[in-house]
Computed example of a mutant assay.
Amino acid sequence: MITPSLDDLIELGAVQDAQGLQGQIKVRPHSADPVALLSSKELWLSLIPRRSAAIAVSHEQASLKLYKVKQAKMHSGTVLIALDGIIDRDQAEALKGARILVSRDVFPKVESDSYYWVDLIGCKAVNLQGESLGEVIDINDNGAHGVIALGDLETKTVKQLVPFVKEAVKSVDLPNKLITLDWQADW
């Protein structure tokens, strides 16, 4: 099997700890509703640090390893995962800190009016007056709601942070990669 590029994979969480004696791992998901993580039949683990604008991680630096998922379930805000080949606590503990990545094309299908946040990255954002606010660079959850970072996607320069709430987000048009916001350019 060919190891994919990090650009082809989506990070869904990180291994927080081992769980029990049978080799299960406890994963801290990046989403409050980790449907893609729970439904994945296989996933990639990487022990490299998170990507940032300052550090470019090359394919050669990526120590990715593919695992088949035997079982995945929610447990107290984390996801417990049993991986093929990880059979005891010591093996599971060795994975602590690993990033969990999956290919975007294995995500479950969503309803027509729903989308994954990762699909918003690269969308152009405009306000109700038609002014360009930049492109979506990143989306994070601050605990209360999502926050989209707008700016220049090529340089990763953030110009604005906008709450991703219904009062601010008026429409999302994924086919045209366009988000309309009730937001001013100088806010």
Rank of each mutant, 00 (worst) to 15 (best):
M1E: 14
I2W: 11
P4I: 06
L6A: 06
L12N: 01
A14K: 15
V15Y: 01
D17C: 03
Q22L: 07
G23C: 00
Q24I: 03
K26E: 13
L37F: 00
L38T: 13
S40T: 08
S40Y: 06
S46Q: 15
I48G: 14
P49A: 11
P49Y: 09
P49E: 13
R50N: 07
R50F: 01
V57A: 02
E60W: 11
E60K: 09
A62E: 05
S63K: 12
L64R: 11
L64P: 00
L66D: 11
K70D: 06
Q71D: 02
A72V: 07
A72L: 05
M74Q: 08
G77P: 01
T78N: 14
L80H: 01
L80S: 12
G85C: 14
I86G: 03
D88M: 03
R89I: 01
Q91G: 13
L95Q: 13
K96A: 13
K96E: 12
G97P: 09
G97V: 05
A98L: 06
R99S: 04
R99W: 03
R99L: 15
I100G: 02
L101W: 07
D105T: 10
D105E: 10
V106R: 09
V106K: 05
F107M: 08
D113I: 12
Y116P: 00
W117R: 07
V118A: 09
V118E: 15
G122Q: 10
C123I: 10
C123Y: 02
K124S: 11
K124Q: 09
K124V: 13
L128Q: 08
Q129L: 10
G130T: 04
G130R: 10
E131W: 06
S132I: 02
S132G: 06
L133D: 04
L133K: 08
G134I: 06
V136N: 10
I137E: 06
D138I: 02
I139S: 05
G143L: 05
G143P: 00
G143C: 07
G143W: 04
G146F: 04
G151H: 08
D152S: 11
L153C: 12
L153M: 08
T157V: 07
V158M: 08
V158A: 12
Q160E: 12
Q160H: 08
P163W: 00
K166G: 04
A168L: 07
A168G: 04
V169C: 04
K170T: 14
V172L: 10
V172P: 10
D173P: 03
D173K: 10
L178R: 15
D186H: 11
W187K: 15
